[in-house]
């Protein structure tokens, strides 16, 4: 064992590094492939109803009578009690910032100048820490903080399609919640 101590493992590091320049200059052969696959994902009754209610300008949750949770995003089963959930319940469109990020990187990993404000909002009327991810707006990045009260800003009714983006973003809630 003692003699091995000095030697050090792994003893060597096999592999051939290729730089982006090697690829650009076609120093290495490669095959380029652009897969084309389209999907139609079944949303299931819970998310289907949830998105339909967003179109109406409302947020809806499901309740589990056993653990007394008001669950949002809603689901037809409670994953902890492992039983069907029991009823629908409209909740508010206000909530609390659970966490957030000020993103200088967009969905395609491109650098952006004006940051995207993104976070998780727990919705008033649901159980603690029950909510979803969304954007923030009508605020400076430095105003955004964990624990901040926020309210949904909806798209005009005509523009809503039954999607999470029917809410444009959440803005600061001021003046007692109205």
């Amino acid at each position: 064992m003692m003699s091995m101590k000095k030697e050090g493992y792994p003893k060597y590091a096999p592999g051939t590094h290729v730089s982006r320049k090697d690829i650009r200059n076609k120093n290495k052969t490669y095959t380029w492939w652009e897969p084309e696959v389209q999907y139609s994902w079944a949303m299931g009754p819970a998310i289907s109803r949830f998105l339909q209610e967003l179109k109406n300008g409302k947020i809806i949750a499901r309740c589990c009578n056993k653990c007394d949770r008001v669950i949002v995003p809603p689901r037809m089963f409670c994953e902890y009690c492992y039983k069907p959930t029991d009823k629908w319940l409209y909740i508010k469109d206000t909530g609390t910032v659970e966490t957030f990020s000020i993103a200088y990187l967009d969905g395609d990993a491109r650098r952006i100048k004006d940051p995207i404000l993104i976070g998780v909002i727990s919705i008033d009327g649901a159980s603690p820490q029950h909510g979803f991810m969304h954007y923030f707006g009508e605020m400076k990045p430095e105003e955004l903080h964990i624990g901040m009260k926020v309210k949904a800003v909806w798209k005009p009714e005509k523009e809503r399609t039954g999607a999470i983006t029917d809410i444009k973003y959440f803005k600061p809630l001021k003046g007692g919640g109205k």
């Binding site: 994902w41 949303m43 998310i47 998105l51 995003p73 966490t99 957030f100 990020s101 993103a103 990187l105 967009d106 969905g107 395609d108 990993a109 995207i116 993104i118 976070g119 998780v120 979803f132 991810m133 969304h134 954007y135 964990i146 999607a163 999470i164 983006t165």
Partner: peptide, 19 residues
């Protein structure tokens, strides 16, 4: 349905967790 329409980047997720 809930996350991808926001054109998400995975780094956002970890940034939110870190925060």
């Amino acid at each position: 349905f809930l996350d991808r329409p926001l054109n998400t980047n995975l780094v956002w997720l970890f940034a939110m967790e870190m925060n």
